[in-house]
Amino acid sequence: MPTKTALVTGASSGIGEATARKLQSLGFTVYGAARRTDRLADLATDGVRPLAMDVTDDASMQSGIDRIIAETGQIDVLVNNAGYGSYGALEDVDIDEGRRQFDVNVFGAIRLAQLVLPHMRSRRSGTIVNISSMGGKIYTPLGGWYHGTKFALEALSDCLRLEVKPFGIDVVVIEPGGIATEWGGIAADLLLKTSGQGPYAAQAQAMAKSLKAETSANRNSPPSVIADAIAKAVTASKPKTRYALGFGARPLIAARRLLGDRQFDALISRAVGMPR
Rank of each mutant, 00 (worst) to 15 (best):
G135D: 08
T140H: 14
M120V: 02
L156Y: 14
T149Y: 02
S122K: 15
Y139A: 15
W145V: 11
S132W: 01
G135I: 02
F151G: 11
G148P: 03
G144R: 00
S133V: 03
F151L: 14
L153M: 13
H119S: 08
G136Y: 06
S132F: 02
I138V: 15
P118R: 04
S122M: 09
M120D: 00
M134E: 15
R124C: 12
K150D: 04
E154Q: 12
P141E: 11
Y139K: 14
T140P: 10
V129M: 06
T140K: 14
M120Y: 01
Y146F: 13
K150M: 09
R121A: 07
Y146S: 09
R123D: 10
V116C: 02
T140M: 15
L117Q: 04
R124N: 14
G126N: 03
S132Q: 02
T140N: 12
A155K: 14
G143F: 11
G148L: 04
R121C: 13
L142M: 12
G126I: 00
G148F: 05
I131G: 08
L142D: 05
R124S: 15
H147S: 13
P141C: 13
V116N: 00
N130A: 05
G126S: 03
I128H: 01
R121F: 06
T140E: 13
Y146I: 11
M134G: 10
F151W: 15
H119M: 13
S133K: 03
I131F: 05
N130L: 04
H147F: 15
K150V: 00
S132M: 01
L117D: 09
V116Q: 00
G143M: 07
R124T: 14
R124K: 13
P118W: 02
R121N: 11
H119Y: 15
K150Y: 03
A152L: 09
L156M: 14
H147N: 14
R121D: 09
S132H: 06
L117W: 01
H119L: 07
I138Y: 07
L156R: 06
G144C: 06
G135V: 09
M134A: 12
N130H: 02
W145G: 07
W145L: 11
I128C: 01
G135C: 02
T149G: 03
S122Y: 02
L156W: 14
L117N: 07
R123F: 07
G126W: 01
S133Y: 05
N130G: 08
R121P: 10
W145A: 12
K150S: 04
G148Q: 07
I128A: 04
